[in-house]
Every structure is written in C-alpha cells, then in structure tokens.
Design a protein around this nucleic acid. Sequence first.
DNA 1: GTCCTATCAACTTT
DNA 2: CAAAGTTGATAGGA
Length: 702
Amino acid sequence: MEGNNTVHASDSVDKSRIVEVKPLRSLAPVLPKNIQSCFPAKYPSGFPPFYSFEKPQEIPLPKEAEEIPVDAETAEEIPVVSAKETTRETPLAAKVTPIRFYKSSVDEEVNPRADGDVNSFSEGLNGDECVDSTRKRGTENIQNCKEFLKRKKNKKTREVAGDGQSSNIGVNPSRNADGDHESVNRVLMTFDSIRRRLCQLEDSKELNSSHAIKRADLRASNALTCKGVKTNLRRRVGVVPGIEVGDIFFFRMEMCLVGLHGQSMGGIDYMNIKDGSKEDTVALSVVSSGVYGDDTEDNDVLVYSGQGENFNKKDKHVTDQKLQRGNLALDRSAQRHDEVRVIRGLRDATNRSAKIYMYDGLYKIQDSWIERGKSGGGIFKYKLVRLPGQKSAFATWKLAQKWKAGSASRNGFILADLSNGVESIPVSLVNDVDDEKGPAFFTYFMSLKKPKPFGLVQPSFGCNCNKACIPGDLNCSCIQRNEGDFPYTANSILVSRKPLIHECGPMCRCLPNCKNRVSQTGLKQQMEVFKTKDRGWGLRTLDPIRAGSFICEYAGEVVDRAKVCQNGEGDDDEYIFDTSRIYQPFKWNHEPGLLEEVSSNVPSEDYTIPSPLIISARNVGNVGRFMNHSCSPNVFWQPVLYAENNQSFLHIAFFALKHIPPMAELTYDYGFVLAGHAEGSSAQRRKKKCLCGSAKCRGFFG
DNA sequence: GTCCTATCAACTTT
DNA sequence: CAAAGTTGATAGGA
C-alpha cells in the first residue's frame, strides 16, 4: 500500500513523504456577514475598468483621447490599483489610460455624426450598419457589410501608411497590415470572446425558441471583419509576425483573422506576385487536416494532396486534377524553392467532431508527382519537408499523445499519478533536468479545507432544477444569481470573466453532472508536474487547451492573515494564494459594441470579494500549487461561489486565458503586495525576482 | 446510452 | 466567380 502511495520512484523511500489521500471535504461553518456584499454594486470594488461605457458622457473627447498613445508600451504603464484601495469615483475611468481607444474607422466612414466620442461610437454600432445581429437578417445587412468592406479596402493604403486618423477596436491600426504578438493576441482573444458569448446566447435561446443561431465562429469572424479587427492583412510568403511555431487554433476563421491562412475552407492559400516584369503565383500556406492520408512516419515530412475533384459532376466522368489554382501555386513555389507555411490539423480528443490546428512552421517542397486515386483520376502529391532549426511543434504534440497512451517511454519519468487516484485523470511527475526525485510532501486534495463562509445574511439555498439546470431557464435560482446568464457554454467553457460566478452546489437539486458545476469536477486535461530549469517545479499540459477551459481549483487550507504573517518570516509564502494582492488588470471579455446582440451586457471584470480569501497549499493542495508565476500568463483565476450546508463558500478557479498548446507550461499572475501595505512582518517581505522571461516582465512578483 | 460515420446545408474567403 | 482539407446538426448503425 505504501509503495503505491510513494511520491518517489527511487529505492530510498522517505516514509515521511508518503502521500496521504483524503478526498473528503471538511467544512467549518462560521458567522455570516451582510448580504450586500454578495451582489456587486454597479462598480464593485476591484480593478478599475479600462473604460467606463456606462458613463459615455464622461469619456474624454476625441482630441484628448487621440493624444493617448495606444501602443503596447503604454498598456504596460496602466496604473495598477489595489483591489482593496480602490474607491470608485467615475472620473477614475477617464484617468486610467485606456489600453485601446474605442473609435472605429467604421464610424468615420459610415456615420457622419461620429466624432470619436464613445457615445456616437455605440450609436453607430447599434444601427444596422454591418451588424449581423439576427438570424433572419435581410440581405440588406450583408450588402451593407460588403459595401463597407469595399470602402475599407480602398482606405487600407492610408491606414497602412499610418496616418493615425483611424483606429480599430482592439488593434492598433498600424498593426493592421503587419501584425505583432500583441495584435495577434488581441484579435484571437476578441474573436473567441464574441464566439463564446454567441454560444451562450444560443444555448439560452434553445429553450425558448426553436431557432438557434448557428456557426458562432462565422458570426464572430464576420463581426470582427466588419470592424476591422484583423491583423497581418498583408499577405506574405514565410513568417507571419506575431505568430509562433506551435501556436494552436480551434477554428479556421482564427487563422484567417490573424493572417496565417487566408482561406476559410480551402486547404491551399496562395497569391499572385510580380517578379520583375513577370507575374507569378506562389503558395503561402497549406492546412493538413490529417484525413487524406498525408501523415508520414517522419513528423517533419508532409505529403500533401492537390485540390480538385476526381470526377466531373456534369458528365460524370473521372477526371484528373488540373494544374491550376493551389496546385499551380504549389508547383511554382517548388520551382522557386520558396517556403510554405504548414498548419497541421488533428481531431480534438475531447470533442471528436472538432479539429485543432497547429502552426508547424516553414516547409519547402522537395518533390511532387501524380498518383492515381481510388476512382482512377490523377491526384497531385507534394512532398513538403520542414526547414531545420525551428522549434519542435507538431512532433511534440504527437509525442505527447504517445506519452498519454503510454506507447512511448519517457526520460525522467518518476510517477504516473501524483494525485494517487484523487483526480480522474492521472497527473504524472517528470524530471528530465536534474536528480531531484519529487516535490516536498503534501496531501493531495481537490478543494478547500476549513473554508470560511462567504458573508450572507440570508441562508444560502440551492436551486430546484430537475436533473440539470438549463441555460435560459430564469426560474433557476442559480441562473438568477448569475444575472440570467449561464456562465459556461455547452462544452463547459467559461464565457466571460465576472465579479463572481455562482455555481450549483451540494444544496442544489440538480444532479452532479449539471453544467453549472464546472469547477467542482476536477481536472479535465491531462497535466504533469515537471521540474523547470530555473523555477523549481512547474505544471504543464499534455493536451491542447481551449481558451476559457477550466484548469483546476486553487486547493488548500483557508488561513488567516495573522497565521500567514507568523509563518511568513522565511520564504514561506511560496504556497499562498491571496485575493487581496495586487493584480495586473487585463481584458478578457470583448468590447461592448462589437456585435449588437452581445454589446449591451458585457460583464465587468472586477472581482467582487468582500473579505480577502487566503489559501495555503503548503500542506494540502492539488496541481494548482505547482503553477508558476508569469507576467504574461496563460491562465487566470476567477472567484466562484456555491452553497454547502446552508452557507456559501468562495473558491478560486483557474481558467485558460488563451489557447494553450500541448506541453506548454501553465502560469498565472501571482500579483504582489505593495510595500508598506502589508501587515506586520510581511511588510518587510522580499519580492521575488521574476524569471518568467516574457517581454512584458515586471521583474518581480510576490 | 454512446460512439462512430455519413450526409447535409449554411457559409466566407480569394 | 466558383471552389473549397469547414463546421455543426442530425440520423442511423454497431
């Protein structure tokens, strides 16, 4: 028994380090406080919003606003405001430098009244201009949109030149033609935020009407295209700025919007170029869906099939593919020895009908030939070989899949399941860096021990839903607490960051598989604890993770500040999570106004926590305790509340901030304590030097 | 009940 | 403009 429980694989088993598994919950009810704190005021205490849309008249006038630089550099200079200290006065919103300036070129072009004032900005959006707002929209709207896009195209040259006159929501106009990391990120985040919200609306409509809005991906993309929220519009051969080898995508549209692959369906993207006096056509990128038998043993080689049917629909004759379009382009690229971007698609393991795409870098066409297909028609084949010296991407993904399946051996493999069966998915322990055989002893536990009730005067109660709560059912008291919105999509993706999320709990009548219990169901992705080069143990994922996916709770013991101070004399706060630290604000929800039906109710991203919650994961915890800090994290925390034993308890749940590729380390922003604001001895506490290595690194944390 | 495949239709890009 | 290595819904079979 003990052998099974050991953290170490080595012979020298230290009995003090035996993992003790206690998957039971311990509850400690305490005194209730006032109910007011549960329901956020209009501006709950917390971070200031980037911009106040509820008071558009107080937004600075355009002249003023245009002086505010919108670069990434400036964004970093946004004053950080303590969750504790912020007293909300409306002008604060105007004082805070906006990360973007919300004025779109659309308004300039289309709405003659638009003068850059946010007010008219919203009006412009609420008109029918280019807003694909209802299922039964007429062709009129589409027409408008097309016309708009035409006009926009003419104007593009000016924008590219950087006259500074126009700007787009979310993207620095100068990044429209040639993007960077910042603009790519922003486009992707905005896209997915709108898409999630559309899914949410769709889910809730299903109950009330038969008409569900389909293809949220297309609709989100449409909205962004109309508003010019795109980047890397200039089509190019080779590297696309801001996109890294190994980046993953969940929709073809995402790759269109950031300029990686311009074809919404087509597998081959190409363009015409002028080479001296001669016109030529060259391939830009190919998407391999992995269904045409183009997989080879060698992950650096791709055999890609040309495009074109093998029979003519009219005369029903077998035909050969023709050397035209994409086929021609690939042929030309081969002769010119040009680079071609390769995107590899694989089935999503968790959602078999969906696909995940990974950018695998640059390849060159080494060979091409014609094969006979099953029907007898000729099929072009192109052998693409990956250029050396690029970061391993697709190969890593495939390897991770093998590790998961147990069909490939691993270097430095220590333990198959650190959680010892507490999690339904095993958490492996790996160290391929040095000799350390595992982290110090702790008890694996999935949730909070000794939680303190969240101050409510009224007794907490659960909902009365039968079996499962259904989005759009306004009789469900849990949905009511979430202001009518179901916090998660049908596939358990968080829709928006909110001051507080109310989940169903043990007191609800619905069953444990109710979709409103996402943070209580344990790990959903396969993860592993691994030894980093310079930051101790860390957590990484073997699976690709979609933005908004639940990662894990921050499990541990709820402690008092006094106790933290007592223990905090050494470097003892390594395993402390504290909601009252200062956290860099960031925008995860989309801007209001990008899509009519979605604009009106974009939740605030200021967390509402009436009294600080401090969790120690030193002795008891889950994988959350291994997540390292980063100033450019890929995970964020979100307060979640649900009731147990007539009381409500606050939990901290982690969600993916963006799409996370397999084998990437999971990190979140630890926040920091302002010097002089901490109590007692911890005031003198040293900040830790940050080694996150990101371009936006603050230099310290903790 | 679930899991897989096949098929269909709505759909946007160049 | 037509074509396209899409996507999600739906149905039927193992």
